[in-house]
Design a protein around this nucleic acid. Structure first.
Lengths: 210, 210
DNA sequence: AAGAATACTGAGCAAGTGCTCAGCACGCGA
DNA sequence: TCGCGTGCTGAGCACTTGCTCAGTATTCTT
């Protein structure tokens, strides 16, 4: 029989205080700093409460990630409802805090299977949402999907914003201004082109065949 | 007075065995797994030797990173000597082990200043080397640098290869094949264009002004 | 062969870790 | 008023961590 340890309610105020503390600590000092005692101290609470609300530290990490991912997905969906455009998608990847935490979680997931799986799952979901949005944007303007795969645009934007935020965290920012200008200008142009039914990334390699 | 602890020779075979072990461990299980006892076990050596050869664990990390960075820079320079092309630069970012270790180091550097500084320094150096190479490639073919900033090409390539390796580590690979095809085809086309003196990234937003 | 420098080891300390458990305080329904 | 569930806590166990130190083995130099 399994020893069913008594656990605190999942809607407790203290519990979400602990999640906040874990997130802050992770952001400021990395995942290695997230120990039961440190988290408790950050939240101004006794360490045993961490174990009262979470079965294990892995569980704490998992719940911290889940809460963030859920909120992110929702925020993205709402943003797409308000203004579905390439620029909105681009701006979404530029949040430095989010990117830093993501790096931290990926590194953590590198040696904790349960966490890696959770990240993979939500990454996949986010990817699908974004792809859907881009496909819709292209479709809205009558651009055929096989002229330029939406996933190419998505991966490019995601990649560029990711390096830039990662480098910013390090303190390396040379060339970032140029890149930003380029992307913003490119988006302007793409939006204008889209209004005229022209694909946003000139598919030169494919077009070169014809 | 500073207590000068006796330290092992920096060209010792045992020392580099420890560096190897630290690297392997970091790659397989993340930086949190790199403890003096674990590293020693991985190298088949007594734990005290870690402290005999390195002043502190931070020092171990620093040296591990430095050795890799140095080797990487050298490898890049040699590759550029042999075959200076966009494709060579692209392929360089595709090494999954390297990218995984990089993530790990960045996460580690997130809360260890000495390490963050070292990463920033070598990232800056690497960036300059790459930029020089791309600028040379463009110049060789008579392409003016202000038509399309080389740093834009560089950041784009770096970013895309980075997301892809990061996602691969997670197990998310949807769209990667398309992206890869696109980039490879783009490089083919760019190389062909370069030979004719046309900039590799069609600077549509800027060209739209003229 | 003698002495010095280098490589290595056994034992251990102080601190921090995840997690447990018995029990206390207190509000709420019976 | 009693009993009970929920939130919380003091004490502590078993273990791992970085690092030290005194001393031994091994190699090198002369």
């Amino acid at each position: 029989m399994t020893t069913t340890r008594r656990l605190g309610a999942s809607d407790s105020k203290t519990r979400s205080l602990l999640l906040d503390a874990a997130e802050q600590l992770m952001l400021r000092e990395g995942y290695a700093a997230v120990t039961s005692r440190r988290v408790a101290a950050e939240a101004g609470i006794k360490p045993q409460l961490v174990h009262y609300y979470f079965r294990s530290m892995d569980d704490l990490f998992l719940e911290t990630y889940r809460r963030r991912a859920e909120a992110g997905l929702e925020r993205f969906a709402r943003a797409m409802d308000v203004h579905r455009s390439l620029r909105t998608i681009w701006r979404f990847g530029t949040d430095i805090g989010g990117a830093t935490l993501n790096i931290e979680f990926v590194a953590l997931g590198n040696h904790r299977k349960a966490i890696r799986d959770e990240i993979a799952r939500s990454a996949q979901r986010f990817r699908e949402l974004q792809l859907e949005a881009i496909a819709a944007i292209l479709h809205e303007h009558g651009v055929s999907a096989d002229v330029c795969p939406p996933v190419v645009i998505l991966l490019a934007m995601t990649g560029v914003s990711q390096v830039m935020t990662l480098e910013t965290a390090l303190g390396v920012t040379s060339g970032h201004a140029e890149m930003n200008d380029f992307v913003e200008a490119w988006i302007d142009e793409a939006d204008r082109d889209l209004a005229r039914g022209i694909p946003p990334v000139p598919p030169r390699p494919r077009a070169a065949q014809g």
